[in-house]
């Protein structure tokens, strides 16, 4: 890879990071803010409301959903998708940067949520899977799966409003699925990855010029 291509990749990565960092910090605020605020107000003890660990799961969910929407959804919303197509980067690399960052952030948020659940559950002297549900340890893998599903929904449906609604529904569906069979979203993830790769190519590079 040439120096020019590296520069282009880094520039794209920086642009992607700028797009998602607001949401990333908000999700981190939920993850860290809840325990810190509670520790400041009254401390985390056995009497602490178990809603705190529910909040971690909500944060992981919102993170995965938000990163999935922001990856390509924001390009279509801000009409920058055609500008993206003009960049001297091949689609696989563009897709790799966008998806890689989204997957990494979803996994990171999920991992932090799982670890926070474990730590807080210990402080509350409770079993973490008991108070947070059986899927609590798996958010680091479930988050990326939700991310891929959401991104696929955003790419599959061109009008932004139906695609947003579909994205939320499919994200909820993934959570509901994982509660029954937690491995099912993982099995579906490669399908969503393939579909989103193909759809992104069609939407960005093969779409008629506006």
């Amino acid at each position: 890879m040439t120096e020019f291509e590296w520069t282009q990749l880094r520039t794209l990565l920086w642009k992607e990071w700028r797009q998602v960092r607001g949401l990333f910090f908000m999700v981190l605020a939920i993850l860290a803010g809840g325990p810190l605020y509670l520790a400041w107000v009254e401390g985390i003890t056995q009497d602490t409301d178990s809603f705190l660990v529910g909040l971690f799961q909500i944060a992981a969910f919102l993170g995965a959903l938000g990163f999935g929407v922001l990856s390509y959804g924001l390009e279509f919303n801000d009409h920058t998708d055609q500008y993206l197509a003009t960049r001297p980067l091949a689609h696989p690399r563009t897709f790799l940067v966008k998806t890689g960052l989204g997957l990494a952030l979803s996994a990171a948020v999920g991992l932090v949520a799982s670890i926070a659940t474990l730590l807080v559950a210990r402080m509350m002297n409770q079993e973490w899977t008991y108070i947070a549900g059986e899927i609590a340890p798996y958010w680091w893998i479930l988050g990326p799966c939700i991310y891929l599903a959401v991104m696929t929904a955003i790419l599959a449906i061109p009008p932004i409003i139906p695609s947003l609604i579909a994205a939320c529904l499919i994200a909820l569906g993934m959570v509901a699925m994982s509660m029954k069979i937690w491995a099912l979203p993982v099995l579906l993830a490669p399908v969503f990855l393939f579909l989103s790769y193909q759809l992104a190519y069609r939407r960005v590079y093969l779409a008629p010029a506006r």
């Binding site: 949401l23 803010g33 932004i160 947003l164």
Partner: peptide, 14 residues
């Protein structure tokens, strides 16, 4: 709209 959904929803949870 998109930023309204994401930033509004997340800040409401906080």
């Amino acid at each position: 709209t998109i930023r309204g959904v994401l930033y509004g929803g997340t800040s409401f949870v906080v």
